[in-house]
Design a binder for these strands. Structure first.
Lengths: 349, 349
DNA sequence: TGGCGCATCCAAAGCGCTTTGGCAGGACAC
DNA sequence: GTGTCCTGCCAAAGCGCTTTGGATGCGCCA
């Protein structure tokens, strides 16, 4: 069933039927009802291809999911972000186009999406410290929102980000308050913007107490469970292991926990662990007292807000770039406790 | 730059340019080269909307991601499956359309995709024991592949599935061989087809030794970390706790492990844990000796194969329904050991 | 009564591509 | 020299929608 057939059924012109369906005023209200009802009855929806062609916009948002070739990993954080964003798209009648590509093809993919007119805008994930994609989007004249920021990029652009620096400054501050001075950090890939901000936050906190970050205690990699495990293991094998560890995601934290338990140690008592918690739906850090002490910020909410911002940008392209800076909340869980020295001090006091 | 402009640049008709670009034979090879080069130089790609309209197919595959309203969860397993499938789509020039919807809107979404002609085919995730979507797809005349199967559905259809029954029969068999008789099962949602098959497999194994599955020891829910935690906790609080536990995913297994360590117990020594391992990229169960004893089958590979099957079905709609039944491999890790009775027996022997 | 304005509808063009159905011209056979 | 076939190109229709630019007819006012 297409427009033409439907309009013939109704004894109306395609023009009128189209206007009736799209809510234009120049059609009698009774006719509109008839049309609406007939469309419903005949199960009619406008053909997507024809609509895109005629309207010149495609009602589609692009997300590109780069899959690194060697390890072929796709971050579960992504799933929650997509869920948050995708729900918003659906509400507004937008489709979500997901392109899975090898790392090195990512730029070509954005170019392709733009020139094929396959999307009205894109959402950029996981920006690097210096991310060329931002410049690329401007060149391609594609509306976009970045989830995160890119420190080095000069121009202004839309973004939604967590205040990573502040969050990790506070996180490290708490550990310092507990008497920890030898603090490790299991962080994300070094060229990721969030990772560099978090490290800066930690550095700030330590610096304010006159402590320098020890390079041996800072790890950078894709944040898998195994990465958390092996990092913690290596820490424990050091002559002078850290007494506290920051972890950039709950997933490596699970691995870190495994390493501790393999070594017969436990969180809080032996080593304090403080994580960034994206509030992943399958890994809720909750309960009377949450398992992990954490700086938390829901990645699903971030997805939702990013989507909202993008849709607004598309609707109103001349709008000034928007920014949302989310503050993470620091909640105390079961994974942190006083440093050994502090513990002795408390006892004797 | 569109076809018309490009053809004017070249002093050719749009027809010839189109044919040259699409590899039709009735164009001189030298002309084709000229066209190809000009297209490249002017950065031309056919407009997606126009192409869909003219061709009558949209080069797009649909995936629907239902998000249950109450708990808003999206399974990380999904991310890996998508990665496997999406890569295959991209290779064949297909786009992936992802729709995030509330559970109750799922059927309406498929209908909508079909009547808008937004997709050439769909991939169905997480089939229930009796899944109405299969009938729906036939009604809508949409090519489809099911990742998993639906036991009750009579008609034939395309599917890619793991031999869940066999896998869990073997898994339970191993535990029995180790002397366990009181075996629990932390399974997926009861109405999921995979969950019912796995339970059946376990039941078969126990039955062959004259043991009946104890209902109190079987849990069904969405497979989050917390679910694994609380289930294991409840098991441990029983007057007669199980000595071994099957877990349908590595994620609840992580929770189960946490419950054990909270109780000062450990896997293998105190309670044997045997999981189904989807080989998630962020949760690789590997190492010299893997952490978990597991029946393993890569969900990413399943995604890849499902995509392949769907593309073939679209290319050749009259083909007989295809089936792929994957066998999981059973690998021994650190999480299983002999039952207490067996342990005593071994000692005294 | 004539004219104006408004409400309601429609014909046709246009979006950018593919595809059908030629058409010219050269090669070749007879 | 005529007819046939093949190569290489093109004009035009058509995909299903939106949108421009009228048309028609009616009520209403002067």
């Amino acid at each position: 069933m297409n427009l033409k057939e439907l309009s013939q059924h109704l004894g109306l012109s395609p023009t009128t039927v189209s206007r009736a369906l799209n809510g234009y005023p120049e059609v009698n209200e009774r006719t509109r009802q008839r049309v609406l009802e007939a469309a419903e009855r005949h199960n009619y929806s406008p053909n997507s291809g024809a609509k895109r062609l005629a309207e010149g916009r495609v009602m589609t948002i692009g997300h590109v999911l780069p899959v690194s070739n060697e390890h072929e990993m796709v971050n579960p954080v992504f799933a929650d972000f997509i869920a948050g964003a995708g729900k918003r798209y659906a509400e507004e009648g937008y489709d979500l186009l997901l392109t899975v590509v090898r790392d090195e093809d990512e730029v070509a993919t954005y170019r392709d999406l733009a020139k094929r007119r396959a999307v009205d805008g894109v959402l950029l994930h996981g920006p690097k410290v210096n991310d060329r994609r931002i410049e690329l989007m401007k060149e391609l004249n594609l509306p976009f929102v970045v989830h995160g920021r890119s420190s080095v990029v000069g121009e202004d652009y839309n973004w939604v980000d967590v205040n990573n620096r502040r969050a990790f400054e506070r996180a490290a501050g708490l550990l310092l308050d507990l008497g920890h001075t030898r603090i490790a950090f299991i962080n994300g890939l070094a060229d990721m913007d969030f990772a560099s901000r978090r490290l800066a936050g930690m550095r700030d906190a330590l610096a304010s107490r006159g402590i320098e970050v020890c390079d041996d205690l800072v790890r950078h990699a894709e944040m898998s469970e195994n990465y958390g495990y092996s990092s913690m293991r290596e820490f424990l094998e050091m002559p002078e292991p850290p007494t506290a560890v920051l972890v950039s995601s709950i997933i490596p934290a699970i691995g870190a926990r495994r390493a501790l338990s393999d070594a017969g140690l436990s969180m809080a008592d032996d080593v304090s662990v403080l994580i960034h918690d994206d509030d992943l739906s399958y890994f809720r850090n909750e309960g009377d007292i949450p398992t992990y002490t954490a700086v938390r910020s829901s990645v699903r909410d971030a997805g939702h807000m990013s989507a909202e911002m993008l849709l607004q940008t598309i609707a109103n392209p001349d709008k000034e770039p928007q920014h949302v800076l989310l503050e993470a909340e620091l909640t105390i869980g079961q994974s942190t406790g006083p440093a050994p020295a502090m513990r002795r001090f408390l006892k004797q006091g």
